[in-house]
Design a binder for these strands. Sequence first.
DNA 1: CGTTTTACCTATTATATCAGTATGTTAATA
DNA 2: TATTAACATACTGATATAATAGGTAAAACG
Lengths: 143, 143
Amino acid sequence: MLISTRGRYALRILIDMAEHNSNKYIKLKEIAERQEISEKYLESIVKELVNHHIVVGLRGKGGGYKLSKAPDEINVGEVLRFMEGSLAPVACLEDNSTPCPKAPFCRTLDFWRGLDQIIRNYTDSFTISDLVKTEEAGNDYVI
Amino acid sequence: MLISTRGRYALRILIDMAEHNSNKYIKLKEIAERQEISEKYLESIVKELVNHHIVVGLRGKGGGYKLSKAPDEINVGEVLRFMEGSLAPVACLEDNSTPCPKAPFCRTLDFWRGLDQIIRNYTDSFTISDLVKTEEAGNDYVI
DNA sequence: CGTTTTACCTATTATATCAGTATGTTAATA
DNA sequence: TATTAACATACTGATATAATAGGTAAAACG
């Protein structure tokens, strides 16, 4: 049931961009260094964020990436869903899945539907701005 | 985020046993035929159910497996958790995980904790008896 | 007693996905 | 025209999944 690095890193990229948001383009190299993730690997992840119009890229000097909308307009569930392909717990609940012939007799289908729904509701209730550091909240854990 | 066949098949085995519960031992071959799953593969799954005292086995003629407790005493979340190893969405929330040094600054930890919790609450709210066919409910889907 | 039956035990394997690396190309700026 | 940084494509090692194969132990039956 683990969320892969693609989904997790995508959130970290977006949070990083939201926290360093100055309307300028941010180099991927900067993000990679701050987040301690391979720049090359991040490229493949940012590519998807660009394809889904969550961020925009600009090439050349002074280029980089920036958010294409406000952090509170970027839905966490949506991002996770396209980065992971799906968040459904079983294949038959994924989009574009071929209808299961056993569905009419399936004892577990409603259980899985319910699980799928609560995951959907929960993840959809967050935006990137909900995950961004506010004041010094992040240090409350330190004694 | 997919639940593997081990978790799904385990539920199907338990539901099958609950529906054919006559206090007698049921041969794995029967279950394998009804569920259309390889008997050999089911063996490795039932083994875990035996280890966790959910079912008991008896060898020889007239042997097989039966539930070691009533269906309404078998918790779905518990079964899924030990069959899957864990249902946590991120490794740092799994049992016995080494503490993450970044936890104090992690922007996403609370989000993942919340997700883990709703999955836990939901799956723990079901028992096998909730999944068993009641009357002809399973055919309600058929027009 | 010995044959059948069925659970139990220990490898081995094909396939796919994950997580990343490597190398090169295009476009924007200075 | 050189530099910068995004964009594109191909490849790779490791790991997990979903099984299969082949055997051993114990309970019943005749």
